[in-house]
């Protein structure tokens, strides 16, 4: 069974057990509204602001003479990536429209499509290929944070001249990709400014709990276990998220902060501050912080594979505890099909 299958099964058993003891202690519409105002909107506003900052930094770096130094671009990228990692777990609502989630970040990319497609774009692309409609219709591999990271961190440098006089430059591509990121980020803010329709509350709460469950699974399975590799085989550092910028663990640290904030809001709505879940959050966050920013470094060090697996296991336990507790408290039908299918 795949790792994902195993986890899904564990959560499913817990949820089935939880289903019998449903306690409706909060109005779902009120819970959803509180999460919208205190978690979702601030998260997307932060993303929009940070992406605007990245756009400014890239414009500065691409102006002759450069208006900002290279460190400023990397700092702006880190700020924007932190902002994205704070909302990456949200998969319902406006981000589900028009493939926005995939266009914000295409990952995992085990076949290296980002590099292939961007290299081709730099060789053969023309200005028209970077127009908003053209870029939106292009492969998601040339859009989003993965593309920006490749352009900044593949070792060639943003300011490298284009292949030919008619070709697009790295600066052109980076500016266009970040422009689309900004368009999406601002659309998400706008999309969430409207309160939920009456009667939407329960579906939104279920979607939030589902997003939370998916996010824990994503960290455990894709961000960590896949990088550790199968037992007895070599690690696979290039499967790490953000391996080029060496911030795989920093992403996980940011994710956990955001997931904890969402969990605590949902838990508070039903008056359930579960000390066991809080302690497990503390433990997982401490463990991630103690390992630095770079997952590539960690997994390549002696004993690194087992450290990464241990971290994955800590996060799997946390996800199970957190999601089960919420599903019981909120009484959502989350995961009836998703978590225990056939």
């Amino acid at each position: 069974m795949s790792i994902e299958g195993r986890i899904v099964r564990v959560v499913a058993v817990a949820l089935t057990a939880a289903a019998a003891t449903v306690a409706h202690s909060a109005e779902p519409a009120a819970v959803a509204e509180r999460v919208r105002v205190e978690h979702v909107l601030p998260g997307y506003r932060g993303l929009a602001t940070a992406v605007d900052g990245l756009q400014g930094a890239i414009t500065g770096a691409c102006t002759t003479p450069p208006g900002v130094d290279a460190h400023a671009v990397r700092d702006a990228f880190d700020t924007a990536m932190d902002a994205w990692q704070s909302v990456q777990h949200l998969r319902h609502g406006p981000v589900a429209d028009a493939d926005r989630h995939a266009r914000l970040q295409f990952w995992p990319d085990p076949r290296g499509r980002t590099g292939q497609h961007l290299s081709r774009l730099l060789r053969e692309g023309r200005a028209a290929d970077l127009e908003p409609a053209a870029l939106r219709g292009a492969s998601v591999a040339v859009q989003g944070f993965g593309a920006v990271e490749w352009l900044l961190e593949d070792g060639v440098g943003l300011a490298t001249p284009p292949f030919s006089a008619s070709a697009v430059s790295r600066c052109d591509v980076a500016a266009a990709v970040v422009r689309e990121l900004a368009t999406i980020a601002h659309a998400l803010v706008e999309g969430w400014e409207r309160p939920a329709e009456p009667g939407e509350g329960e579906a939104r709460v279920a979607a939030l709990v589902g997003d939370l469950a998916t996010a824990f699974q994503l960290i455990e399975v894709s961000k960590l276990d896949a990088v550790a590799g199968a037992v007895g085989s070599r690690p696979r550092p290039r499967l790490a998220e953000s391996w080029r910028s060496g911030r795989g663990l920093r992403n996980v640290a940011v994710n956990l902060r955001a997931l904890r904030a969402l969990h605590d809001l949902l838990a508070a709505s039903v008056g359930r501050a579960d000390p066991v879940v809080e302690a497990q959050f503390d433990r997982a966050q401490r463990e991630v912080r103690s390992r630095g920013d770079s997952l590539v470094e960690l997994v390549g060090a002696p004993g690194g594979q087992n450290r990464v697996r241990a971290l994955a296991s800590t996060i799997a336990d946390l996800g199970q505890l957190a999601v089960t507790g919420l599903a019981r408290g909120l009484g959502t039908g989350v995961g009836f099909n998703a978590l225990d299918g056939d």
Partner: peptide
């Protein structure tokens, strides 16, 4: 299927 659609199915068709 484009890659993002493959990813969106999360390895599972119901």
């Amino acid at each position: 299927m484009p890659p993002h659609a493959v990813a969106a199915l999360r390895g599972y068709c119901g």
